[in-house]
Amino acid sequence: MKGVLLVNLGSPESPTAKDVKPYLDEFLMDKYVIDVPFLLRALLVRGIILQTRPKKSAEAYARIWTSEGSPLIVISKRMHKKVQSLVDIPVALAMRYGTITIMKGLQELHDKGVNEVMLLPLYPQHAMASTTTIVVLAEELRAKHFPEMKFTNVPAFYNKPDYIQALANSIKKHLDTFEYDHLLFSYHGIPKRHIRKTDITKSHCKIDGSCCNTESPAHEFCYRHQCYETTKQVVKLLGIPEGKYSQTFQSRLAGDKWLTPYTDVEINKMPEKGIKKLAVVTPAFVADCLETLEEIAMEANEQFLHHGGEEFMAIPCMNDGDAWCKTVANWIKDFQKE
């Protein structure tokens, strides 16, 4: 029997330092997130970061927390419910970090008689710190607890026409209500070394401005290329002219060389360039979360206005929109036919 496991990032149980700390520990101690030897990672995370970061992160979570709980969890549950209503095989929801674990999701499917699982990480673009860590953990759990199960891993869907169409329609709906000067595509940042580590050719990715536009097998796992490709296809579909849009990367950690240009730096410079009305979309996420609601809709908004901007629109993610849920349901139906 076939079934589906949808997997997103996760969330702390509450916006308090007490609950944020174990969540951050699990997240940052993941070797695919901070990819340094264990002892150094433990020193960085437990010796330095977790001494101050939980309080600051808890304050950020508190700004976006709803009466129902974490926005990412609430939205993911709604999306899961809609998708399940559109298909006739079991669909479970899990998070890579936190209490809605992949183990629980697999157990739920197992208890319903599922032995063939469509594993769908809810990340459009492939990255070590998102897709890889989900697939690796799920496989470890399968081998240990559910050896009779078979996985079909859904690859990054950054350029699938139906995803691009759903994303473009979602963006257009908001742009139609806002007379913008510029549309910014802000993607989650990753360290540059992650790009090189996922280069299966071991030679293509130079992050030099040209390699992402030169055909290569490396693009199958290149986060940077996939981000630029998503942007390229969406602006083509929406007919947005050159010069009226740009792309940046957000959420970097200090001490590493991360993908550039940086979202906050670029946004702060825009008003002096004549961009007074800015729309920002975050296509690395399918559901609104801390990075979209607090970092962009609140912080970036405040900074843009502070530097002379006049109007700012944070375009919501696709969340549990009907078109997006139908798109995922159609992928599941294709899986059923295989």
Rank of each mutant, 00 (worst) to 15 (best):
N169L: 12
A138V: 07
V135D: 10
A168N: 06
S130C: 02
K192Y: 01
K202H: 14
T131F: 03
H145T: 05
K173C: 13
H219M: 08
E140D: 10
L120K: 00
N169C: 03
A127C: 11
Q247E: 13
D176V: 02
Y180I: 00
I207Q: 13
K173W: 10
C222G: 10
P147G: 07
T231W: 02
P191V: 09
T177C: 09
L184H: 08
P241D: 10
C211Q: 10
K206S: 15
Q247N: 09
P121G: 09
P241N: 07
S186E: 07
T131V: 10
H174E: 15
G209C: 09
G243M: 07
Q226F: 08
N159M: 05
F185Q: 12
P147E: 10
A218W: 00
I240F: 06
R224D: 03
P241I: 06
S170Y: 04
T177A: 14
R142L: 05
K150E: 15
P241Y: 13
L141T: 06
S246M: 09
E179V: 12
T231V: 11
A168R: 03
L167P: 03
V234M: 08
G189V: 05
K244H: 14
T132P: 04
K202M: 03
C205M: 13
A168T: 08
S130E: 01
C211D: 08
H219T: 12
Q165W: 04
G189P: 10
E140N: 05
P217H: 07
I200D: 06
K172Q: 13
T177K: 15
H219N: 04
L237H: 01
T231I: 09
P155I: 03
G209I: 13
T214A: 12
G189M: 05
H174F: 15
R193Y: 09
L137S: 06
Y245I: 09
F157I: 08
T201C: 03
V235N: 02
E179R: 15
P147N: 10
H145E: 11
D176W: 05
G209L: 11
H174I: 03
Q247H: 12
P147W: 02
